[in-house]
Design a protein around this nucleic acid. Sequence first.
DNA 1: CAAAAAATTTCAAACGTTTGCGAACCACTT
DNA 2: AAGTGGTTCGCAAACGTTTGAAATTTTTTG
Lengths: 342, 342
Amino acid sequence: MNKPVTIKDIARKFRCSPSTVSRALNNHPSINEDTRRNLQEYAQKVGYQRNQVSLNLLNTKTASIGVIVPTINNYYESAIIEGIDAVLHPLGYTLNICVTNERYLLESEYVTKLLSNRVEGIFLSVSQETYDSGHYEHLENVGKRNLPLIFIDRDYEGFSAGSVTIDDYHGAFAAVEHLISTGRKRIAHLKGPNGMAVTEQRFRGYTECLTKHGLPVEERLIINTNFKVESALEPTAQLLELDHRPDAIFGVNDQVAIGAMKVIREKGWRVPEDIAVVGFDNSPISAYISPSLTSVGRPGRQIGEEAARIFLNYLDATTKKDVPVHIVLPSELIVRDSSRGI
Amino acid sequence: MNKPVTIKDIARKFRCSPSTVSRALNNHPSINEDTRRNLQEYAQKVGYQRNQVSLNLLNTKTASIGVIVPTINNYYESAIIEGIDAVLHPLGYTLNICVTNERYLLESEYVTKLLSNRVEGIFLSVSQETYDSGHYEHLENVGKRNLPLIFIDRDYEGFSAGSVTIDDYHGAFAAVEHLISTGRKRIAHLKGPNGMAVTEQRFRGYTECLTKHGLPVEERLIINTNFKVESALEPTAQLLELDHRPDAIFGVNDQVAIGAMKVIREKGWRVPEDIAVVGFDNSPISAYISPSLTSVGRPGRQIGEEAARIFLNYLDATTKKDVPVHIVLPSELIVRDSSRGI
DNA sequence: CAAAAAATTTCAAACGTTTGCGAACCACTT
DNA sequence: AAGTGGTTCGCAAACGTTTGAAATTTTTTG
């Protein structure tokens, strides 16, 4: 680990001033052609890399923005990041990705770190713990700085921040309505962890759709999972042992739906003939498993892009107190084999 | 977007020097108890956040390290990142995650950016384009700086860098040997893109295992894919139309294997009775699809952890020219239903 | 009360770079 | 000889913070 070569080092070597070196390397016109060439060649030779840290300090800006997400280990989240990057990278911004693993402490820590690293904006997909606890003090300083803050996935009213969310409610509603339209009457729901926005909105879509169609909302048909495939196994087994077993299962996401399908078949039932299954996320494999999985798609990439645009609008905003922008993107039901009509 | 409050601002407000403020906020002992409390309270109130950028400049270190990966949209890569973070986060390091989408240009750009942002080490999983082109000039300056560089997944001999790789060869070998041991004799391979290390090593495991067991390596049974599930559809269809169809398919990864299974069943064959299928990655769903997928597991998290430890050793190394560390972790075959004996 | 000791605060430099302004130099022109 | 104009370069300040050493104030001591 050698010390990086600095402009001063080069200046000393050439017995000239740092200003000259700086100008030479930046192709400033008022530098003699020869000196410019010599300096540039030497800089190249010794592997000079301008110290961006010092520039960030000088300009009091960093051209970097923070992205805090609960996890990157799934299609949806990484699509969001891709979307943000697609818009902001061409403008010279660097993404600072932070993964909280759904932990409040990490989220809080990352916010502080990003703040003190002087990012120019923060994209935040609130962790489960944060959402559960309702603690938003870690965002106070973001507010004080009036730094562009854009909520992704989960909105929070306490701040004058932008947000891009998904219409989980109508997605769930459509999924359940589809099941009803194919003749299913006892539709179970493998719910996510209580209290989370995604969970509750999908749940509301589920219940309200049932109600609209005159079907009862049975508590026994609603069981919690934690989004992971394993967490669907036991609940599904439970559902199948009911006196009056469900004829359809709506999973809070694809993982859960896949877990449900596995158990259904292990117990000797058929999908979709005996029990239809619908998931949420339209993850890439959902089309390729067997039977292919009906699912509600979320436009992850588009979320990222919209969020990035909101950020850019913030920067342009001349009037300080613009009304924060809230965008709700539609989700889309994609019907496949796991829920074909009986 | 307000200007962040600086130590100078506070000093001006309290008619004292910046040094006093700095020491007060850092609980330096030689500061009067009252002034300390006053300053700290005020700093808290106005949301002062120390400017890490200036500190990085002052200390000529950043406590951040760069992680360059081709993609984050899969279990394996994100497990690696998790592993790195698990070791380095407790030590105060920040991860700077860069996603290249398998592009050389982006990789090169990110290396430069990380270098000029003065990261203290770089973890690099070389992009496909880089590997194909064999261009490693973008790493020259990393070499000149003698900055800790650890290759992940794909080693490259040109640099005195550490590396943590997976024993793809033996993993593939074991997978094919398993298929042979269950009586399969015509084993096809859905290969990755030519030239990539993972691809070729798994391919070598495949061919050498066949040869060892006296089975012919038939060109018609080897077709390229691009790792994605769609890219397996057409090739699999081709394989099934051969006069003498294969009785097993070894996919370069799980995605491809899942695509193959879909086509096999659509054409009316059974897995594993007619055709066995084996994948690579042991991705979480592989256990839960039907039939569950036999797969070779890669310990992503462990890779990250080992890589981080190599990095830490670099730092400790008193002798400059230590021999770079190369670790090869084993992969592990996990047998499931898709390849049960006939 | 003076002097010494202790407590508290300020000064100045440093990290690496950019940039407005002015200085030095040269060649020409009048 | 003096002015003009152009080219090329250096000086110094700035970004925000820390820190050793020096300066100031307060307290203790004889």
